[in-house]
């Protein structure tokens, strides 16, 4: 495997060719914010939180979908990037009805944690307060569109890992919504296996187990590595 060398935050590092810039950055122990990225799923490049500055290029690059290249010089944490990341979080919070206090995932939510980490303590934009439904037709799980950030982790895990492809995206723009089957009540979808992977990968309280009350939902992502390691590398122990 060929190796490339690049500079990340003034530090010269090497990485296998054809890997993502994000994985190199994370390997350096740099804490870079991500939301739609989840190890084990294909990259979507949607949340744009992992954008980095690239020397000699006026554009910003989402590191999750940018392959490493020889001689790259990147900066992961400049004042401009911090400002943009804060704005992106605020845009997400203004888009739907994120009421942390009454959320099943209060205290364990990736959006909430990232906001605090990035110093977002208020939202400068108008809240859009959309009138969105909640689908509790599934026998075990609930989807609450009010808390969805459209990262599509659920859609990807359903398609790529479970192989059911029950969930997908309907509508467009700010009207986009995660849908089950042919945009039908989730409980009536015949392709759903009820595996619950979508629930576990969801970064917010949009997907949760029935019966969870405020702050009770804690999610596990490590099952994904376990399944994929088993499938692809025949390693069958929790790592």
């Amino acid at each position: 495997m060929s190796v490339v060398t690049l500079t990340i935050d003034d530090k010269l590092v090497s990485a296998p060719a054809n890997t993502s810039l994000l994985s190199s950055i994370q390997e350096q122990g740099i804490d870079i914010p991500t939301l739609c990225h989840l190890k084990g799923l294909s990259e979507r490049g949607g949340c744009r939180l992992c954008v980095v500055e690239m020397e000699g290029n006026p554009r910003l690059f989402a590191s999750c979908v940018t392959p490493v290249a020889e001689g790259m010089v990147v900066r992961t944490n400049t004042a401009k990037l911090l400002k943009y990341r804060q704005m992106m979080i605020e845009l997400l919070m203004a888009q739907r009805n994120h009421v942390c206090a009454v959320c099943v995932q209060n205290g364990h939510c990736e959006l909430q944690t990232l906001a605090a980490k990035l110093g977002v303590t208020s939202v400068r934009y108008d809240y859009m307060c959309p009138d969105l439904p909640m689908d509790a037709s599934h026998e075990r799980y609930v989807i609450d569109h009010n808390r969805c950030i459209l990262c599509a982790r659920c859609i990807r895990v359903c398609d790529e890992v479970e192989g059911a492809h029950t969930l997908d995206m309907g509508g467009r723009g700010v009207q986009s919504r995660v849908i089950a089957g042919m945009n039908q009540p989730w409980g009536t979808s015949r392709s759903c296996t009820g595996c619950g992977k979508c629930v576990q990968v969801c970064p917010t309280g949009a997907l949760f187990k029935k019966g969870s009350s405020a702050a009770e939902m804690v999610k596990q992502h490590d099952f994904l590595t376990w399944i994929l390691d088993g499938r692809e590398k025949k390693i069958w122990h929790w790592r």
């Binding site: 009805n97 206090a101 303590t121």
Partner: peptide
């Protein structure tokens, strides 16, 4: 000082905003 979530986001009182 915006003291607590309601002052900052609208929070629980703001849940009526969709109606």
């Amino acid at each position: 000082v915006s003291f607590g979530d309601c002052a900052i986001t609208g929070n629980v009182p703001g849940m009526r905003n969709r109606l």
